[in-house]
Amino acid sequence: MPTALSNAVVGQYYSAKIEIEKVTLIDGLYFDTSIPTNSGLSVDLNAGGVPYSDHTIEIKGTPTRSGTYHIVLEGITRDAHGGNIHFRKEYDLVVVK
């Protein structure tokens, strides 16, 4: 959740959380983003509540420039039959002027 991120606006505070289903992750969560360190935005990889704190990612801050940034979350969980379920979620965060 969510299925898409709302747009951010340069110079205005932005906050969005991406939550993964509360299941056991095998080998943790893979996270990658093209958000540059000097964008005014930061990413908190452990923004959820215990014991699933690593299931929630929060993007927040005041963007300093416009652009489109890509975010990828990927991992593996167990299904009810003991097998593995691979998931991959991709988001685009659009920052407008």
Rank of each mutant, 00 (worst) to 15 (best):
T37G: 07
D44M: 05
D79Q: 01
N84C: 00
S6K: 12
T64N: 12
V96E: 14
T68E: 13
L45F: 06
R78D: 13
T37H: 09
P63Q: 08
A47S: 14
G11T: 07
V94W: 00
G75I: 05
T68R: 08
I57H: 08
T56I: 10
G49E: 15
T62H: 00
G61M: 03
L73M: 14
Y52L: 04
V10Q: 08
Q12I: 08
D92A: 12
E19T: 14
E19Q: 14
A47H: 10
E90T: 12
Y14H: 07
R78K: 13
Y30P: 02
F87T: 03
H81K: 04
H70G: 01
S39N: 01
R88W: 11
L93Q: 06
L29G: 00
H70R: 12
E74Q: 15
Q12M: 08
A16S: 15
I20T: 13
V9M: 10
H86C: 02
V10A: 04
V95E: 02
T77G: 03
G11I: 04
G75D: 13
L45E: 14
G40R: 07
K60D: 09
G40S: 06
S42A: 09
D79L: 05
F87V: 04
T77C: 09
N84M: 08
H81C: 01
S66D: 14
S66P: 10
T24G: 14
V9Q: 15
D32H: 11
S39I: 01
A8C: 08
D27M: 06
P63I: 04
A80L: 08
A80E: 10
L41E: 06
D92H: 06
I57N: 05
I35G: 04
E74W: 05
I20F: 05
V94L: 09
I71T: 04
I71F: 04
Y91M: 02
A4F: 13
N7D: 15
S6W: 02
H55F: 05
H81I: 00
H81W: 14
Y69V: 00
I26L: 13
Y69K: 02
G67R: 03
T24R: 12
H81A: 05
R78S: 13
V23L: 13
I18C: 11
S39V: 00
I57V: 15
G49H: 10
L41I: 04
P2V: 03
V43Q: 06
I26R: 12
